[in-house]
Simulated scan of single mutants.
Amino acid sequence: MISITTENLTLRLRRKVEFGKGAGRKPASSLHIRDREKIDMRATSTLTMALPALLALGSPAAAHHPGDKLDEVMISKEHFFQMIDRPAPPFNLVDADGRQVALSDFADRIVILHFIYAGCPDVCPLHAEKIAEVQRMVNISPMKDRVQFISITTDPANDTPEVMKDFGPAHGLDPVNWIFLTAEESQAEDATRILVKAFGHKFKATEDGLQVHGVVTHVIDRGGRWAANFHGLQFDPINLVLYINGLTNKHRKPPEPTLWERFRSWF
């Protein structure tokens, strides 16, 4: 019998989904849209077959599920992981249609949050596409209805509703569980940049209309607990998916007692 470890399966999966990143190939961002669609279809097909087995290794029934040691395991696996474990800063913002959205609206989900602005010429589009890659993996698993992806603009003045509505499709984000938020008209123009500071980093506006900033993906557990950060663009998206899965399993309700167990509890 062949034994497949989480590490082996992760390595195989990574090799398959990165077939388009080898020497002599164009970066995904420079590919023609049809070529990118082909890559997405092949990658999604591979993930559809491999991810359930990978996540099964992370289920509560598996012998090596990290459980309460989830953060320790991720620290050992992912160089760009940072454990936080404190309440997330609350926010009340609006979506592209002007509907009010609060972080507390997603208290029953795991939230993947990041800050960007549509006019960013370099890392923001790459960050959005990294989040989209994670979202695709999550959405082919049972976690789809348990995870909410949120992008928040740090440039409310220029990221108009039209710009916000075009941003997701342009970068592969699926509105089924992704939303793009901005400040309300009654809020200060720098309201979301102030919110960034509450999450531990900065977007500093410059005179040429750009912003100097870092790149951080925030993971907020159910109940509003700020669980962790994944820094930069070099983290392995599979590790973020496994971390989300670990949080999901951590919150699973115990099975309902059987009729016999309830009967015995009476005595």
Rank of each mutant, 00 (worst) to 15 (best):
T6F: 05
L9R: 08
R12P: 00
R12G: 11
R14C: 05
R15N: 04
R15L: 04
F19P: 02
G24T: 12
R25P: 00
R25A: 13
P27F: 07
A28M: 09
S29I: 10
H32C: 04
D35R: 14
K38D: 12
P60H: 08
H65R: 05
K69R: 15
L70T: 08
L70I: 13
D71H: 15
D71S: 14
V73N: 06
K77D: 02
K77P: 03
Q82R: 15
I84W: 03
D85A: 14
R86I: 11
A88K: 05
N92S: 14
L93T: 04
V94A: 13
D97K: 11
F106A: 01
I116V: 11
Y117Q: 02
Y117S: 01
G119D: 08
V123N: 00
L126Y: 03
H127I: 13
A128R: 01
N139V: 05
N139M: 07
N139T: 01
K144D: 09
D145N: 14
F149M: 14
I152R: 08
T160I: 05
K165I: 06
G168P: 02
N177D: 09
S186T: 15
S186R: 11
A188I: 08
E189H: 04
T192W: 00
V196C: 12
K202Q: 13
V215M: 11
V216T: 12
V216E: 04
H218M: 07
R222L: 01
G224Q: 03
R225A: 05
A227S: 09
A228P: 00
L233I: 00
D236T: 03
P237K: 02
L242A: 09
N245H: 14
L247V: 04
N249V: 11
N249L: 12
H251V: 07
E256Q: 09
P257W: 06
W260H: 10
E261L: 04
F263V: 11
W266H: 15
F267N: 13
